[in-house]
């Protein structure tokens, strides 16, 4: 009996591990320079839709050409980090957003050479509020 209960608890606790280490990678194929950007994990789960989701994310990038590269969060002017004369790099950063966001690897000419999406998900969707006030059936 005790082993059975213990088994259930272990199974329950292991279930979330499956998604925790998913990665997201996108390689720019149209650019003559081959580059890739990986996010680990690539998913952040909040309890309720609309809440800020927090996740420590490792960004790994690589490129076929040596150069100056920066990683940006979409719609942000300031890069998260830049590397000089490199073909690869890693960065750990604290993701915090209430919606899914793109991360982009840009070269010195500010061209996007690779990008990956950090997905924000939630358990409970936002409440639906009715416009009507008084009601009976």
């Amino acid at each position: 009996m005790a082993r059975f209960i213990q088994g259930i608890w272990i199974a329950l606790l292991l279930l979330p591990v499956k998604n925790a280490y998913a990665i997201n990678e996108t390689t720019a194929t149209t650019n003559p320079v081959s580059a890739s950007l990986l996010l680990t994990p690539a998913r952040c789960v909040a309890l309720h839709q609309g809440q800020i989701c927090y996740q420590r994310v490792q960004i790994s990038w690589s490129s076929s050409a040596v150069g100056n590269y920066c990683v940006y969060m979409e719609e942000q002017a300031q890069p998260l980090h830049c590397w000089q004369e490199q073909t690869q790099g890693t960065l750990v950063f604290e993701f915090a957003s209430d919606s899914s966001r793109l991360l982009q690897l840009k070269n010195a000419q500010q061209n996007i050479v690779a990008e990956a999406s950090m997905e924000v998900a939630w358990v409970y969707k936002a409440n639906t509020r009715r416009k009507t006030h008084w009601r009976l059936f």
């Binding site: 329950l12 279930l15 979330p16 499956k18 998604n19 925790a20 789960v45 909040a46 309890l47 998900a121 939630w122 358990v123």
Partner: peptide
């Protein structure tokens, strides 16, 4: 306290 283990488990 409540914590989302993933999208289905809390």
């Amino acid at each position: 306290a409540s914590y989302p283990l993933n999208e289905k488990w809390v």
